[in-house]
């Protein structure tokens, strides 16, 4: 049963992240995802200090707000004339530093381990259960991730066309009368929500891994957005399950193993993809030379 809950959590993280990752990759915002997943830390810490509990709703709201604040700050700095890479770097390091400082200064009040912040501890998920009216409802993380995934699926299902046009051609989207900025913040809000709810189970940096790597793998395999999302989710789920098995064999961090497997899948796609893979590319080049 323990294994079931851990694998379920990993699969939920992988699915939520891989769907959103496709849009981040297409909009060239991969590193904004990186920034958000670090910058939600002070939100989580403040929500902890204010509510004094690990109550999920507080944390989800507080930290999601910080995610949106990050996006807003990055854009404000950019419009004031700072180059985009530097504004991303400054904003997320500053917010992450605030978070680490808040946690280490209130170490006795906050039930959060700093190592946990980076790697997460998915192995503890089954013990941290949510009780409603005395009844055990299963692990809290599964509920939070389940809610997040439902929100993502709902929004994506309703506005798939809008998100698609915004991802490929924001100018055309604006010309069609789609509120581009609203969809931008909607996407970023979903990324923040995912970052927050995956935070405790896989940690800041590995959220980024699940956001970017499966989506990039899928990007190498297809030219169609729908197929890309499907492949990305498949790659995410395969890495979640096999990463868990490998971590069991190696006696090492589950989240680390999951991301490593995702990386290995990416390398395979990089080499073997029939359309964009390196081997196919060199074969085509040699054919062209021979002709």
């Amino acid at each position: 049963m323990m294994d079931f809950w851990i694998i379920l959590t990993a699969v939920l993280v992988a699915s939520a992240c891989s769907i959103l990752g496709c849009f981040l990759i297409l909009r060239r915002m991969a590193l904004v995802g990186d920034a958000i997943s670090h910058a939600v830390l002070p939100g989580i810490a403040i929500a902890f200090l204010m509510s004094g509990t690990r109550d999920s709703m507080w944390m989800l709201l507080g930290a999601t707000a910080f995610g949106l604040l990050t996006v807003f700050l990055i854009q404000t700095l950019q419009t004031s004339g700072l180059q985009s890479d530097a504004s991303i770097g400054i904003v997320f390091t500053a917010l992450f530093a605030v978070g680490v400082l808040l946690i280490s200064l209130n170490a006795q009040h906050i039930d959060l381990d700093l190592d946990c912040v980076l790697f997460g501890e998915i192995a503890y998920v089954p013990w941290d259960t949510w009780t409603l009216g005395g009844a055990d409802m299963g692990p809290r993380a599964v509920w939070m991730l389940g809610i997040t995934l439902t929100v993502i699926l709902l929004l994506m299902g309703l506005f798939y066309k809008q998100f698609k046009i915004c991802a490929f051609d924001p100018a055309m989207a604006a010309a069609c009368g789609i509120p581009v900025l609203l969809f931008h913040y909607l996407l970023m809000g979903m990324v923040s929500m995912t970052a927050v709810s995956s935070f405790e189970s896989v940690g800041a940096i590995l959220v980024v891994g699940m956001l970017i790597i499966p989506a990039a793998t899928a990007y190498l395999l297809t030219n169609r957005l729908g197929v890309m999302i499907g492949l990305s989710v498949a790659a995410g789920i395969v890495s979640a399950i096999s990463g868990y098995l490998i971590s069991y064999l190696l006696d090492a961090s589950i989240a680390g193993c999951i991301v490593s497997v995702a990386g290995i899948l990416f390398i395979l796609a990089l080499l073997l993809s029939p359309s964009h893979g390196l081997i196919a590319k060199f074969a085509r080049r040699r054919e062209a030379q021979a002709a």
């Binding site: 990186d34 790697f119 940096i205 590995l206 980024v208 970017i212 971590s247 991301v259 990386g263």
Partner: peptide, 15 residues
């Protein structure tokens, strides 16, 4: 950069 960063860090975490 994001891919390499997280992949290396993931391997580092495992180690």
């Amino acid at each position: 950069m994001g891919i390499v960063l997280t992949f290396f860090f993931g391997i580092g975490t495992v180690m």
